[in-house]
Design a protein around this nucleic acid. Sequence first.
DNA 1: ATAGATGCAAAGAGTTTGCATAGGT
DNA 2: ACCTATGCAAACTCTTTGCATCTAT
Lengths: 126, 126
Amino acid sequence: MAQRVTNQRRAIEHVFETCARPLSTQEILEQAAAAVPGIGIATVYRAVRELQDERRIAAVPIAGEAPRYERARHAHHHHFYCQKCTKVFSIDECPGDLSRLLPPGFRLMDHEITLRGECAECAAAT
Amino acid sequence: MAQRVTNQRRAIEHVFETCARPLSTQEILEQAAAAVPGIGIATVYRAVRELQDERRIAAVPIAGEAPRYERARHAHHHHFYCQKCTKVFSIDECPGDLSRLLPPGFRLMDHEITLRGECAECAAAT
DNA sequence: ATAGATGCAAAGAGTTTGCATAGGT
DNA sequence: ACCTATGCAAACTCTTTGCATCTAT
């Protein structure tokens, strides 16, 4: 039978609909728990995997950090990692073609840029 | 007393001196084990941490992958991840200043670029 | 009523740590 | 002889999985 609409799943989907930036599984758990107290981390992992399979959310891999997840977007974009608060933000632009950096013989299929520094909030607090 | 020169440490340092690309802890273990059979993974982790503290090697964080380690270099550079063989290669160049991508108020301190695709060897095998 | 979804706890994978002992100084 | 570095195994963290139970359909 088809997928069921549960409170947990609804809460997790709602988190992605309203969040402004990519979230970690812990952040998803905490925000979903506001609507469904007692929700388990396994449910978050399961829902995240299914939403990824359905291409409704995308993993945002941050080197040295647990992946964050955000609503799937059509446009290619990158991310900013705040070294103070560890939050991740989306960056809409892309510097463009990087194939000129490649050694001969290498085939470029994708690229990923992570900017690091302080987000506006943390920079203002300095 | 000062740090001791053991066969294990010598072997691990030798791996970095001769390797052409950033290595994972498993790769380090395997290559060091050629010189010191029975060397334990804990020894590799401990040596890697100490070499990092001494700034003799640097971690190469690859999003979604275990970090690789390479000899510390002075020049800023980036990395290429081969999606076929999972090996990581160094890329000497950098596209330059990316601060124009930043949202207002954000403070840029570093950036990291991972190119993905096929290395020369894997591309040739296609 | 049925079968997919959930929560818990156990199991894995990767990394770190405690401890007795080997071995560099 | 001293005391650091090692190897093993246990501990930890993060993620996945098994299973009894719950619940949407």
